[in-house]
Design a protein around this nucleic acid. Structure first.
Lengths: 117, 117
DNA sequence: GGTAGATATTGATGTTTGTCGATGTCTAGG
DNA sequence: CCTAGACATCGACAAACATCAATATCTACC
């Protein structure tokens, strides 16, 4: 992997010091915000939580669809947002698609927010 | 304090188990999301960070305005969002208004997100 | 290879959000 | 009181977003 300079949101979160420790640069803030936006939605929060709490730490889309009163495309959309943010990993097995929480990204994000102690 | 049943976002975050430990209820997710929405914006992230990193842990609005290429009403709006979410405390002294990070809320929020370890 | 089921993509629509200029409300001094 | 400065509120607008119905793309199986 390893592109050139521009870090992904997840990479940025992993390497920068806590929010409250020193002032964020504009650039850093702009890279982190998308990650937070991704989880700043009740449906996506529940999706993340459902996936994480599921057996084996992963869940099939078909399981997730049933947990909501929303259309299948809407759930698919939210999963895509979480996946593209780097918070959910995808793996296709047969006809089914399984999602799994990218725990490290969540942990790093938490450290960034609460890092002050 | 202590209203009746309905918890504020900050109270909800303080008392519920981590995202990845057990599936969030719809109600809990709806109460937490506003908190995350509040910090899911690059300007508000920097505001939070600037306030926290400032001398004495608090900053005057006048200082904050100068740190951005945005109009004064816009900064005032973002501060209001952070304040209403319970992430910034306000105190007026003379003509000036000072904001201070509500550290506990941030810490609890971090625990909620990264709680899995 | 045709069909059924699982998931993704597309296009449209209503709502939310970030931003600004204009204006309002305080407070301290003159 | 009247003015100047600090901050908040209001109204308007454009961009971003959540949602859906319709449709497309896979994959397994018959």
């Amino acid at each position: 992997m390893s592109k050139s300079l521009p870090l992904t949101p997840v990479q940025t979160v992993a390497c920068c010091s806590p929010l409250v420790a020193s002032a964020l640069t504009e650039e850093t803030a702009e890279r982190i915000a998308p990650l937070l936006k991704a989880i700043a939605d009740p449906v996506r929060l529940r999706l993340l939580s459902l996936v994480a709490a599921h057996d084996g730490g992963e869940a099939c889309v078909c399981d997730l669809n049933d947990a909501f009163d929303l259309s299948q495309p809407t759930i698919s959309h939210h999963l895509k947002v979480l996946h593209e943010a780097g918070l959910l990993d995808r793996s296709k097995r047969g006809v089914w698609v399984y999602y799994r929480v990218h725990q490290e990204a969540l942990t790093d994000l938490a450290a960034l927010i609460g890092g002050g102690r």
